[in-house]
């Protein structure tokens, strides 16, 4: 990958981001800077605002106050800026969200052909490359409904990668999977992390967090309470709520 040319560049800068659902304040001043190639895992109890936060980075949620800048482009109401950012930021969902009426190949090539304006041949070539990378080139002409959950999620990852984004957002990508399929998806994610993609992942997979992340961020009540290197994060938690959270998930 030729992505590490300017490894220290800030890819995502969030400053004091607030987000309201009606009266409810889901994010209360989140600030986070992500450098190129960073792999950041966001942990937190449910309802802590971690999914909301990464969804606001590609404008699936609209933040109410504060600033989000992706690759130097500030996220505003301007649809052209939003479109530009969405081209650079890929997202993988908990429920895969594949398009059930299109084949795997069509799922993957749709955006490159229509958004990147690639020729069909180029798009299909790239799609096969990514399908091979995630290990399921033979499924290209099936429909999503014919695949297992793990395969569907790998197709979703291939679909995201085919747009050649620089940043990948993972929103609990393994939570909807049967246990025996979690590993195949985590393996793909680890490979991508090693290749230098900038990754923000919301996940409950502690092994992945510890082994792959450069930094772990703990969120609760819409705030970032702690942000640290994995070893320090797990072995020496400082915030009392993080201590409670870790004790709840690690000892049972």
């Amino acid at each position: 990958m030729t992505m590490n040319v300017n490894a220290n560049e800030d890819v995502i800068v969030c400053k004091d981001v607030h987000l309201w659902y009606g009266e409810f304040e889901a994010l209360r001043g989140v600030s986070l800077t992500v450098k190129r190639g960073d792999v950041i895992v966001i942990l937190g109890p449910s309802g802590s605002g971690k999914s909301t936060f990464i969804r606001s980075i590609n404008r699936l949620e609209e933040h109410g106050a504060g600033e989000i800048v992706v690759k130097g482009i500030p996220l505003t109401h301007d649809v052209r800026d939003i479109a530009e950012i969405r081209r650079e930021v890929g997202m993988v969902f908990q429920q895969f969200n594949l398009f059930p009426h299109l084949t795997v190949m069509e799922n993957i090539t749709l955006a490159p052909i229509n958004v990147r304006k690639w020729s069909r041949e180029k798009a299909e070539e790239t799609a096969m490359k990514w399908l091979t990378r995630v290990g399921i080139p033979e499924q290209a002409h099936k429909y999503p409904g014919q695949l297992s959950g793990g395969q569907q999620q790998r197709v979703a990852i291939a679909r995201t990668l085919a747009m050649e984004p620089e940043v990948l957002l993972f929103d609990e990508p393994t939570s909807a999977l049967d246990p025996e399929m979690v590993k195949e998806v985590l393996d793909v994610m680890s490979d991508l992390a090693k290749e230098g993609y900038t990754i923000l992942a919301v996940t409950h997979e502690m092994g992945f967090a510890r082994g792959v992340a450069d930094r772990i961020v703990f969120m609760d009540y819409g705030e970032i309470l702690e942000s640290d290197h994995p070893d320090e994060f797990f072995d020496n938690p400082k915030h009392p709520r993080l201590k409670l959270f870790l004790s709840q998930i690690l000892h049972h």
């Binding site: 699936l60 969902f93 969200n97 398009f99 749709l110 955006a111 229509n114 958004v115």
Partner: peptide
Amino acid sequence: GQFEAADSLGLNTFQKMRFI
């Protein structure tokens, strides 16, 4: 999720409606 997936891939409103 269908709307969100189309949005996150960068399809514009017309393409999202037309294809998805």
